[in-house]
Write a protein that binds this DNA or RNA. Structure first.
Ligand code: FES
Ligand code: FES
Lengths: 148, 148
DNA sequence: AGCATTCCCTACCTTTCGCATAGGAATAAT
DNA sequence: ATTATTCCTATGCGAAAGGTAGGGAATGCT
C-alpha cells in the first residue's frame, strides 16, 4: 500500500511534539510517548538514528530528557524520515543502476526515479517549524478556547 | 523503506511490455512473464485487478492472450499502480480523518497528504506511451545496432 | 558517597503481509 | 474431442515490521 512505516510516522510525531515545547526544559521520553500515544520502549529505539543524525539530543539523569539538536526551523521532515528509514529512493536501482540486470534498458527505472524525487521534494519543503504552526492552528480550531 | 511492492512494479512492467507490442496480436502471459522476468503464476494474479480496472483485456483459448484495453497513450502509470495497490494515499486518515483519533489536530496528516499528492501527480504525468518511448530510446542506446 | 532518575544499548519475540506456488475450471479455436 | 489459453481460489513460506524486556551507564540531587 506504499504506506510509510511506523518508524517514520512515529519519529515525525515525536519530533513534532518536541518542537511544540522547544523553549522549555528537555522532554521526558515518557511524556513524548504519552502525548503521541506511542509505545515508550519502541519510541526509544527510534531515538538512536535520530541522535545519530544530529537531530535529537538526550540528557541523562535527573532533569534529563530529550530536546531538538537544532532549531525547529532548520529541521526538514525529510531529514527525520531519512534518519529512521534510510535513503528515500524507492528502489535501489534508482541510485545504483548496477544492482538491476535490466537497468540499461528499463523505462520503469526512470519513472520510479521521478516519483522518488517528488517525494523527496515534498518532504524537504516542510520544516518542523511549519508543522508546529499547522499543529497550533489546527488545535485552536478543534478545541476552541472558552476564555472571554 | 517506502518501496513500491512487486505488485506495482510487475504490473507496470507487464503493461509496458504490452505497450511495446500494441499493434500486434494478443501477447501470451508466458511471453510477458518471460520478457520481464516475472513468475508466470504470480503475474497471472495481477491481471485480475488490471482487468477489473479496464486497463487489460484477456482472450481465452487458442490464439488467446492479453492486450491493452485502451491505447497506450490513454493509460497513465497512476491507473496501473492504483489498480493493483488501491488508493495511493499513504495513510487512510488522509482521505478519512475519522479513522485517526488524533486527526482533528494532527499536523502530520497534512504533510502525508501533500506527499501523497506529489506521488499521485508524478504517476499521473507519465503514460504508457511515454514509457514505451523512453524504453525504445534506452534500448537503442544500450544495444547499438550493427547494421550498415 | 550514595541514591534516584533518566537515557542508552542489546537481544528477543510476535504478528503481519508481501511474494510465490499449485491445481483445477471455464472458454475458445482447430 | 483435443488442445491451448485465460480465469479463479486456496495455500504455504519467509522476511521484515512492530513491539517487548531487562539491564547498563551516565547524570544530578541530597
Ligand atoms: S532497472 Fe531496476 S526496475 Fe528497471
Ligand atoms: S491523523 Fe492520522 S496520522 Fe495524524
Amino acid at each position: 500500500m506504499l504506506k510509510p512505516s511506523t518508524r517514520a510516522r512515529y519519529a515525525l510525531r515525536a519530533m513534532l511534539e518536541l518542537s511544540l515545547h522547544e523553549a522549555t526544559r528537555p522532554l521526558l521520553l515518557r511524556e513524548i510517548a504519552k502525548a503521541q500515544c506511542i509505545s515508550e520502549k519502541y519510541l526509544e529505539q527510534l531515538t538512536v538514528p535520530l541522535r545519530c543524525a544530529r537531530l535529537l539530543r538526550g540528557r541523562r539523569g535527573s532533569n534529563g530528557g530529550y530536546e531538538l539538536a537544532k532549531p525547529a526551523k532548520e529541521i526538514a521532515a525529510r531529514e527525520i524520515v531519512e534518519a529512521v528509514e534510510g535513503r528515500l529512493d524507492l528502489l535501489d536501482c534508482v541510485r545504483m543502476p548496477v544492482v538491476c540486470d535490466r537497468a540499461p534498458a528499463c523505462a520503469a527505472r526512470g519513472l520510479w526515479g521521478r516519483v522518488s524525487q517528488a517525494i523527496t521534494a515534498a518532504l524537504s519543503e516542510t520544516t518542523l517549524a511549519d508543522l508546529r504552526e499547522e499543529q497550533r492552528l489546527a488545535e485552536a480550531k478543534a478545541v476552541p478556547s472558552y476564555e472571554i
